[in-house]
């Protein structure tokens, strides 16, 4: 590989590593949100449950709102932080 290729390689790796770490970060956030609301609000007696839109609050916050929040986070992160990189060989395949 030439020096230019090596530099490009290093750059691509840096981008890929950073985005993988972001993925792990979102997954951890997703897990905490999901777990905390489900078992934080859901472990009391069902007769003491509060309700949002007719659903038990634990379920609404954990599964419905959680899903919406994660979707927004994913959209935001991809639009803001994900870099478009050219892949090698694309010209060959066309």
């Amino acid at each position: 590989m030439s020096t230019k290729d090596l530099e490009k390689d290093r750059y691509l790796n840096k981008v890929a590593n950073r985005e993988a770490l972001i993925g792990v970060g979102i997954a951890i956030f997703n897990f905490i949100w999901w777990y905390a609301f489900a078992y934080g609000l859901g472990s009391k007696d069902p007769s003491e449950y509060t309700y949002v839109f007719g659903l038990p609050a634990w379920f609404f916050y954990s599964c419905v709102l959680g899903f919406i929040v994660i979707s927004i986070v994913v959209i935001f992160v991809v639009k803001q932080f994900f870099v478009e990189i050219p892949f090698e060989e694309e010209k060959e395949n066309e």
Binding site: L12, N13, V15, A16, N17, E19, A20, I22, G23, V24, I26, A27, N30, F31, F67, I70, V74, I85
Partner: peptide, 15 residues
């Protein structure tokens, strides 16, 4: 399973 939607491509995707 929601996590699969983003995790797979974020981890494997570019690399």
């Amino acid at each position: 399973q929601v996590v699969t939607g983003y995790f797979v491509l974020m981890i494997l995707g570019k690399k």
